[in-house]
Amino acid sequence: MSDRTTSTRTPVRENRISRTAAMALMLLLAVYFLLPVYFLVVAATKPQGDLASTNGLAFSHFDLFGNLDTLFTRSDGIFGRWALNSVLYAVLGAAVGTLISALCGYALAKFRFRGREFLFSVILGGILVPTTALALPLFLLFSATGLVNTYLAVFLPSIVSPFGVYLARIFAASAVPQEILESARLDGAGEFRTFFSVAFKLMTPSLVTIFLFQFVAIWNNFFLPMVMLQKESLFPITLGLYQWNGQTARAPLLQESVITGSLVSILPVIVVFILLQRFWRTGLAAGSLR
């Protein structure tokens, strides 16, 4: 290889060939990633009858609004309820989760105390614990305390994110200079005031990152709500659509609502995603540092 590249003519040709090959490969992969979403968009605009009879990748009779109407009025508007539940679980859970992660990560980064490293390693170990392995024992514990089949059964375990603490510690260490804390202390500010008035502002961009990661984790969660909830009115979207999808064999007309519902549930998150891109990158970059 090095023999070939040392000559002066070949690199140019090699470059053009590899340029074309690289673009072709990436375009192919982009098609792969976008195809299912494109299919979903097309399918969500079709009347049920056209699903099987027309080409899945081509638009036919445009009936998106009819489908949305059916989706949101089916079973007394249960889908709207599921959407609201998902928003509640994810927004509140991620907000509370980010706050407690920030407090703990900040303390781990900025305070010296005995057992600090031990505490941090226990939390790091928590990142490796498969959360689905926790769901079944949690179900038993929650049924003993009467929490099963309530909002809290899904909400409470969702606020705990060891990965959030890990990120918060890294971000607090780099974003909050020690001198500022010292000076705030000398001015007589309590630790909590210092945290909320000084550190919190400095950490805000990273807190958005932590919030986003936890939001998506809760929004996408399926196993925990499935184990905890029987009452349909408490379901998040994922569990609701899963249940509908299981009924399509008996009630084929549900198919169109499963498709439209899937689209409705992923579009807002994808948009937020694209808008807040830079926050993802900070988080992923920090995640790759060790």
Binding site: F33, P36, N220, F222, I237, T238, I266, F273, W280
Partner: peptide
């Protein structure tokens, strides 16, 4: 490439 990360596993499997 990153967009699917926003899609819940259940919905991805349904799609």
């Amino acid at each position: 490439a990153f967009m699917p990360y926003a899609v819940p596993g259940v919905i991805a499997a349904i799609m």
